[in-house]
Design a binder for these strands. Structure first.
Lengths: 226, 226
DNA sequence: CAGGCTTGTTACAGTATTATTACAAAACGA
DNA sequence: TCGTTTTGTAATAATACTGTAACAAGCCTG
């Protein structure tokens, strides 16, 4: 396999680390090891495709480490937890800090490998969104949330901007009113689907000629297509 | 609370189904149940956000079902397996057919819910893999619900699209009017079987030369065959 | 090959869905 | 706070979709 996956093992049991390292390496993975959470944080963690974290470690626990990785480093690298503890609460904590899987010791190497592969397979399709989208003479800046057409600013409201962005990110696909509501309106607000229509109408008017790129189709919803 | 995820439970233990249905429904999920793999295949499975499959079932096993779903229907909907069996080999079979998680009975509802949420959360960032069916110069995009012939868009209504999809997914098999009604019309609406004929006629007209691939046979129903 | 049954097609009407407008409520900023 | 902007609702007209009925054409079966 040309691009080998890099996996970081964080566990303070050196024996187990060695076993894992040997076995996973022979599966074709590229392995690095850290013997504590602190040591792990000293590495540039964004290099790895997957982290295997022991929950029970001297010093920082695996959960704590995962939390830092998610919240402070803001990384979305997949994480699998290893733990000797079997209680349900641990499970839940694990998933709450964004674990991708969870294995209780003792586990078989084959099972671990299977789960690693499952997690890596999932991750393959994630797509990095561009921050600026250009469509002919129309530009959306997702960071600044601004739109220009022929370099002229077009002032869209928040909802209008988000709908336009969503349609464009799914260019060519019809999105139902419900899907649009789900994504753009906060969960606790209850509004009618007609709202989507109204906002689409406003949007169409504001973006001039591009308005006709937003197609509406009975039973399907809306779609951007140019 | 717009975001209801639709989950299909496939298990032949009715009691368990009921318990799961009740508990998951009260978590805000929208639940459907099938008591066998065969019954599950009669549903349009692309409607669901997640499948919970029992491994051990009378008739088709959960693994077999998953395999069909992945390979024949070409769906990438997340799957979680439920099983009483704990052997490692089962685990591995599960992951090989593209399972997203695996739970051994008995499991706690809370754990199941946590795992469901983990799987659904993951799915958010994953770009849906295109589900496109190509038949000579005709292309059906099941995600976009669009049809093109020689790269020209063919605008089908929902019913027309669904009928065409259903026929093509069961290419070579005659589907009775009743089967088509059951699958495509919602349960509470009562309509005559003649409706199927009418929609088939419209469909045939819209898809031009491919119209003649939809064969009708007295007493059998309709079948797509090219 | 005739009669009854099933199927294909068309036209029409009822229903559902969508676009647009105007106005009111809510949120926002100075 | 007040005035402005944004957002939601309701009403309406326009459009699209779907079901029914009617009839023609096909197909079984005796």
């Amino acid at each position: 396999m040309s691009n080998t996956y890099k996996i970081l093992i964080v566990d303070d049991e050196k024996d187990l680390c060695e076993i894992l390292q040997f076995n996973l390496a022979s599966e074709g993975f590229e392995i690095e090891v850290a013997y504590s959470g602190e040591e792990a944080l000293n590495k540039s963690l964004d290099r790895f495709d997957l982290l295997l974290l022991d929950v029970m470690m001297g010093g920082m626990s695996g959960f704590k480490l995962a939390d830092k990785i998610r919240k402070e480093l803001n990384l979305s690298v997949p994480i699998i937890f290893l733990t000797a503890r079997e209680t349900e609460n641990d499970m839940l904590t694990g998933f709450n800090v964004g674990a991708d899987d969870y294995l209780s010791k003792p586990f078989s190497i084959r099972e671990l490998v299977a789960r690693i592969k499952a997690v890596l397979r999932r991750g393959k399709n994630v797509e990095v969104k561009p921050k600026v989208i250009t469509i002919d003479s129309m530009e959306l800046d997702l960071n600044r949330k601004s739109v220009t057409i022929e370099n002229e600013a077009v002032l869209l409201t928040r909802k209008e901007f988000e709908i336009l962005t969503m349609l464009i990110l799914h260019k060519g696909k019809y999105l139902s009113r419900q899907e649009i509501l789900d994504r753009i309106w906060s969960d606790d607000v209850i509004v009618t689907e007609r709202n989507v229509d109204v906002n689409i109408a406003r949007l169409r008017k504001k973006i001039g000629a591009y308005g006709s790129c937003i197609k509406g189709r009975s039973g399907y919803g809306y779609c951007f297509e140019n």
